[in-house]
């Protein structure tokens, strides 16, 4: 963390030079290759397609988390928000035949509104982010229960299923992957190549300095939490389209809040703020998906899967910390 504080604020670009992306690509490719030698079935196009597809929802949510962490915040409420969005969109589609474009609107509106609420609590009421989002975690989770009244989403209309699985206009790339590419590009541009991104990183680096430099710190904070909410709800919509199901434990049951933090940090974003790696987040999520699939191909007993995940987090974050310390 002292590394981040010591870094000059004049260089707010996301950490291109630590080459975390290259490391992740290399490690992912190496593990995929190694598993492929043991079990060639791993390297089929079909399997790799699902490895990618399975990582999309987490990637989208984690990109929002990346923005928040870059600003030295944290957002635990992404998990219930993702679940709320999946439940509301799914139930509206299942029981009221809401068209897909309507669901996109509903998801984004929920995300913006509740994300903004997080932002206001953090920025205007000065509640620390971890406490704010711990509190809204319960509130948003409760909304899902209230809305669903104990039912679940079992089936979505064909348009939703097509959106979640097939490619648009007959393209071989599934729509969720394209959505992820778009979101990644937008975040990459916003964070690394826009005034907004410079402001976010400046706030993460040193909020006092950012304020003294004339930045509207509170407004930036609200915007970033709103974006995180937006992406969490977009993730929820993609989830319900891809899996065709949503229950009250969607998001929270899989601990998406912890997973999204983990992949953001493994991807090279610093928890102390001030530096983010958008591409790293997506690649880390892909790496996680690769490892979890590889464990099945290697016939590792399922009880050790989450241990594998834990080790991956510690090893990968350790590498990042060392590099950052070395640069300071």
């Amino acid at each position: 963390m002292s590394a981040a504080a010591a870094r000059p604020a004049a260089d707010p670009r996301p950490g291109w030079r630590d080459r975390r992306e290259l490391v992740l690509v290399a490690v992912t490719a190496a593990s995929a290759g190694a598993v492929g030698i043991v079990n060639p079935g791993f390297l089929t196009v079909e399997n790799l397609r699902f490895v990618a597809l399975n990582s999309v929802v987490l990637s989208i949510v984690a990109l929002g988390q990346t923005l928040v962490i870059a600003m030295r915040g944290i957002d635990l409420s992404v998990a219930p928000l993702m679940g709320l969005s999946a439940m509301v969109c799914g139930l509206l589609a299942q029981t009221h035949g809401l068209p897909l474009w309507g669901a996109v609107g509903v998801a984004l509106a929920i995300g913006l509104a509740l994300g903004t609420l997080n932002g206001v609590l953090v920025a205007a009421l000065n509640i620390p982010p971890i406490i704010t989002t711990l509190g809204t975690y319960s509130l948003f989770g409760g909304l899902t229960f209230l809305y669903s009244d104990g039912t679940q989403v079992d089936q979505v209309p064909p348009a939703y299923a097509a959106f979640g699985n097939a490619g648009p206009l007959g393209l071989p790339v599934p729509t969720p992957v394209l959505v992820l590419l778009l979101v990644t590009a937008a975040c990459w541009f916003a964070l690394g190549h826009s005034r907004f991104g410079r402001a976010v990183l400046a706030v993460g680096n040193n909020a006092a300095a950012a304020y003294n430099a004339g930045l509207r710190v509170a407004v930036i904070r609200i915007q970033v939490y709103a974006l995180s909410g937006l992406l969490a709800c977009l993730g929820g919509l993609v989830f319900v389209c891809y899996t065709g199901s949503a229950t009250v434990t969607t998001g929270t049951g899989d601990h998406v809040e912890l997973q999204s933090i983990a992949v953001a940090l493994v991807g090279g974003t610093l928890i102390a703020g001030g530096r983010a790696n958008v591409l790293g987040t997506v690649l880390a999520s892909l790496f996680l998906s690769t490892v979890l699939t590889a464990l099945v191909f290697l016939q590792v007993p399922p009880i050790w899967y989450s241990a594998g995940e834990g080790l991956m987090i510690l090893v990968a974050v350790r590498g990042g910390t060392r590099r950052a310390a070395g640069r300071a």
Partner: peptide, 25 residues
Amino acid sequence: VATEYGQSSPSQSLTAGLNILQAHP
């Protein structure tokens, strides 16, 4: 040939299902 667990989660069950079928064609 395989026993996997989906933790009663639709998404983890789906992933486990995909993995079973890919790893054991």
